[in-house]
Design a protein around this nucleic acid. Structure first.
Lengths: 264, 264
DNA sequence: ATTTGTGAACACGTTCACAGCG
DNA sequence: CGCTGTGAACGTGTTCACAAAT
């Protein structure tokens, strides 16, 4: 889900589908757990259950990687761990910089999942001079003046942005100019990046809003039979409901509780 | 992307497509920014640019909500803000509990985007007695013994899990048993929930791994002509590459650097 | 003259169901 | 017989391109 100008218009590559790539880490995690318990093989059914997908999807996914797996038996856990790790590029170590060491940046710096496999926090960067030198999660914070130098010296190609939204684009631009080609954005903004740079975003409020949508729908369905677009408004007249300039009487959405306040 | 047992097998509802729902918060954010700058109307082209999508997609998305917008003119900003807010259920206030007040939980508690629109942190809950009563982001942490009571008293239907992976499922089970029907999971585990409960997950290491995949691909393409599955291994012989039990010579993935170590 | 709203075409993703192999 | 691997069917999401509206 690369945001910004990153659109590959129907890449002709016979590569792995994006949806599959997004599930490989899930499989890898499940497999790693099995590996730690010294389980030698798994069936697609078992592994799928552990990863929270259905077995047909899993088999299809694996078929893009090649014919690992043995009919009548299942998949060799260790072998699959290796193959998926390799496919994901986790056999090499990726140095990562985190920019913006506020609450969230600090939490990310201390997150165990980082160091676990393939990733290494190369540097923590913040614009606040008061932070410079202060160790966070055991790593001293560096000042953003040195951003370019750090990126270069450590050969960083992945950057994590945990700054306020207002400065995220500038930080992004500097990261990209310095050679970063993959960005994980926690700031609630759309980032614009040149072609060839991947951006993925993690956005708390978007996730909550999607949940709220479904939550609301549940509340509506709970009583209604077919479809109940009625906003079971707990709050009476929440906000001033504006209206567009319109004359005719064409259908305007599912009406229901569209207020009759229609200024000419 | 609800994980767990939450699969709606081809919902017949004439509702809004999931992909569209996932973009509504994006539009809403862009529109809110315009609203604050007192911009009265936007064209699909402008708004799409601001939201980081293309205009055809945006118009199609809006068409599912109804025929807001005026041909030849564009969309009324205020009206659209209201309509999307209503559709997302943000005209009512959603109390949210955050369980697990470690670094991440604390960061989430302090996150501005929470309170911004529609959401309110009803309680912070942690299992550590030493945390109980301690204010985090201005809210006193409560002990997890009281989880059920808190959920009930505040009518909470959305829960955020920011605990270690090991306890995430138990926390989830308790939340669900207490009446929570939407969960945002930051713990790196697959959660199992009964039907009717929505789970969305935010997983740092999965996002990084997806970026690493593309990053690796870029490194390969940069020199190779067609396809270069060569792992540009910085690290020599990263790990012992296992192999499956196999006799024949059928194609086994894209070979390339599949090691010739094949134990019988 | 613009810009929306939308059928139709296309691309992508998922599921089915079974052939093929061990 | 069991389980993988995969073509084919199906469903969802995206893009195109243009008629309709103001």
């Amino acid at each position: 889900m690369a945001t910004g100008r990153t659109h590959r218009p129907a890449t002709r590559s016979r590569g792995i589908p994006e949806a599959t790539v997004a599930r490989l880490p899930l499989y890898l995690r499940a497999l790693t757990a099995l590996s730690e318990r010294s389980v030698p093989t798994v069936s697609s059914e078992e592994l799928a259950a552990a990863a929270g997908v259905n077995s047909a999807k899993l088999r299809k996914d694996f078929s893009y990687l090649g014919s690992y797996g043995t009919r009548g038996v299942g998949y060799d856990v260790e072998y699959l761990v290796y193959q998926i790790s390799r496919e994901l590029g986790l056999t090499q170590d990726w140095p990562v910089v985190i920019v913006g060491i506020g609450n969230l940046g600090a939490a990310l710096a201390g997150y165990g999942g980082f160091a676990s496999r393939g990733f290494r926090v190369a540097a923590l960067i913040d614009a606040d001079p008061a932070m410079t030198g202060k160790p966070v999660a055991g790593i001293p914070v560096q000042h953003s003046d040195d951003l370019e130098k750090i990126i270069h010296d450590d050969g960083v190609s992945i950057g994590v942005i945990a700054t306020p939204a207002g400065v995220a684009q500038q930080v992004c631009d500097r990261l990209v100019a310095a050679g970063v080609t993959s960005i994980l954005n926690f700031a609630p903004t759309v980032l614009s990046v040149p072609d060839g740079v991947d951006v993925r975003k993690v956005d708390l409020s978007i996730e909550l809003q999607i949940l709220a949508f479904h939550e609301q729908r549940k509340a509506g369905e709970e009583a209604g039979g077919e479809n109940a677009p009625e906003t079971g408004a707990e709050t009476p007249a929440a906000a001033v409901p504006p209206a567009p300039r319109s004359t005719g009487g064409g259908r305007k959405g599912p009406d229901g509780d569209v207020p009759a306040v229609m200024p000419a």
